[in-house]
Computed example of a mutant assay.
Amino acid sequence: MNGQESTPEPQFSPLVDDQLCFALYAASRAVTARYRPLLEPLGLTYPQYLVLLVLWQDDTVPIKDIGAALQLDYGTLTPLIKRLESAGLVRRERRPDDERTVLVSLTGQGRDLHTRARGIPAAMGAAMGLTPTQFAQARTLLRQLTVNVADPA
Rank of each mutant, 00 (worst) to 15 (best):
N2C: 05
N2T: 10
E5P: 04
S6N: 09
P8W: 04
P14D: 15
V16A: 13
D17T: 15
D18I: 04
D18L: 05
Q19N: 10
Q19C: 10
L20R: 08
F22V: 15
L24G: 03
Y25P: 02
A26I: 09
A26F: 08
A27S: 13
V31D: 04
A33T: 12
R34N: 15
R34V: 08
R34T: 13
R34G: 11
R36A: 10
R36H: 06
P37L: 13
L38Y: 11
L39Q: 10
E40A: 11
L44P: 01
T45R: 04
Y46I: 00
Y46D: 00
Y49N: 00
L52S: 04
V54D: 01
L55A: 03
L55Q: 05
L55Y: 07
Q57S: 12
D59I: 07
D59Q: 06
D59F: 03
D59S: 06
V61F: 02
P62Q: 02
I63S: 04
D65W: 01
I66C: 00
G67Y: 01
G67A: 01
A68K: 07
L70A: 11
Q71T: 14
Q71D: 12
L72Y: 06
Y74D: 10
G75V: 15
T76D: 06
T78A: 09
P79E: 13
L80P: 05
L84K: 09
E85D: 12
A87P: 07
G88W: 10
L89R: 03
R91P: 04
R91M: 09
R92T: 14
E93L: 10
R94G: 03
R95P: 02
R95C: 03
P96V: 12
R100A: 14
T101H: 02
V102I: 15
V104Y: 04
G108A: 11
L113P: 06
H114A: 12
T115I: 09
T115G: 11
A117H: 05
R118G: 02
G119V: 13
I120D: 08
A122Q: 08
M124F: 10
G125F: 12
L130A: 11
T131S: 12
P132I: 11
Q137P: 06
A138N: 14
A138E: 14
R139K: 05
T140W: 04
T140D: 13
L142S: 07
T146F: 06
N148M: 10
V149N: 07
A150R: 09
A153C: 08
